[in-house]
Amino acid sequence: MSEAVSALAGATSKGFVDVTEVGLVGMVTVRGDLGDAEFGKAMSAALGVEVPEARRMLVTEGGKLLWMSPDEVLFVCAHAQAEARISTLSEALDGHHHLVANVSDARAVFEVSGTGSAVREALAKLTPADMRPSHLPVGEVRRTRLAQVPAAIWFDDENRATIVCFRSVAGYVFGLLAQASKPGSELGHF
């Protein structure tokens, strides 16, 4: 088996917010009817966490479960554990119409950190999504776009956001974030 490497090998940028490519992160997509109680029960048992409500993120031991759409959730865990999670999930969901896929290597993950509302300011330059804390609180996931490409954004706490994009556009997204966080370009809006 070849050695797994992340898209930008942990690139970092310093500005009024710091941008870091997080490196290898495990991601498992689960698709199925989240409205079906039986399906939800089977999935919860396999992951040890409830089915999140719309747009919510639930943190559990060894991972996070993110609501992606009415028929899709994303489990984020350590890169090495993704395959084991897939076997557990596939076994638990046997008999239900479902799809479980390892998408770890199809994605790039960035962490954006800064103090005050700096992170929200930097991101607001790039996305049409409302970045006010009232509209994107900690624990909620927003799938949107960063400039020209799709991305998912969530805040782990007020000073730290995680951004997930497709691996093929990792360089582009890193450039965007680095440019948007250049010292002196603070907006002071929030």
């Binding site: 747009r55 759409s69 509209h135």
Partner: peptide
Amino acid sequence: PYCGVACD
């Protein structure tokens, strides 16, 4: 109406 997000 599915995810409740105000989309641009």
